[in-house]
Design a protein around this nucleic acid. Sequence first.
DNA 1: GTAGCTGCAAACTCTTTGCAACTCT
DNA 2: AGAGTTGCAAAGAGTTTGCAGCTAC
Lengths: 136, 136
Amino acid sequence: MLKELQQKCSKAGLKMTGQRKVILQVLEEAEDHPSVEAVYDRAKEIDSSISIATVYRTLNLLDELDLVIRHEFQEGYSRYEVNWDHHHHLVDLETGEVVEFQNEELEKLKHKIAEELGYDLVDHRLELYGKKIKKK
Amino acid sequence: MLKELQQKCSKAGLKMTGQRKVILQVLEEAEDHPSVEAVYDRAKEIDSSISIATVYRTLNLLDELDLVIRHEFQEGYSRYEVNWDHHHHLVDLETGEVVEFQNEELEKLKHKIAEELGYDLVDHRLELYGKKIKKK
DNA sequence: GTAGCTGCAAACTCTTTGCAACTCT
DNA sequence: AGAGTTGCAAAGAGTTTGCAGCTAC
């Protein structure tokens, strides 16, 4: 599915500069939820002339286009991931590892709750923070 | 229930200085989820000599003691509320108003999901973002 | 050709911290 | 008395922005 992000960006009217291609590639290949700094470091390995300002600007654009999701896992900075499919996160408090999950029951419940409060659900955020259960 | 926070702080070994009393009072009386700046402004109305550094330090202490909950509603800064009872938030995207709610079904579901992933749930975060349903 | 994009460095916002003075207990 | 707390100002982290030059379309 490489290049899919590029197509969406072009369609949105963004110019496909060399820097943007690199940043999009980094995001598409990421299997984690990289910080701006991490995206910057990985992008620099491909094109060392990229500046962090461009990374910030690009990520903000992608966020506005909803091509990317910005997370703030209570760390004081943002982390990003491509907005492929809808899921939630469980953060391992001991390792920082982020586990993704989906749950249909939860989706229904969210809408039901919002509706009961008199609202149309536009967006939401659910994060679980836990510790791995130790086997004996 | 005024003064309850003060008692908990004393019990935790914190000195009850004039500044802390003022900040605790502001938090107890708040019916919203004030930012640090907002707490500072309200505190200054009671004692204009309070510095924002003290507000930051006090809120961090209260957060460590779990007497207060720190929120980061994707705004780029923190907002606080006294940790009275457990609930979640629905943020009105049009007005910024924050509606609180509780839902037993949701509590159970959270634990079930974490367990299925092999985790003990330590903490979590759920926020809904919506728009008020217009009546005709 | 030109609107949009970039790198650089400076600026900005939110938050933390070193220090000397002060204050609860 | 003494450990903890404070205000101030400076520093720190993360992020944004003005500008002159560059580039995709």
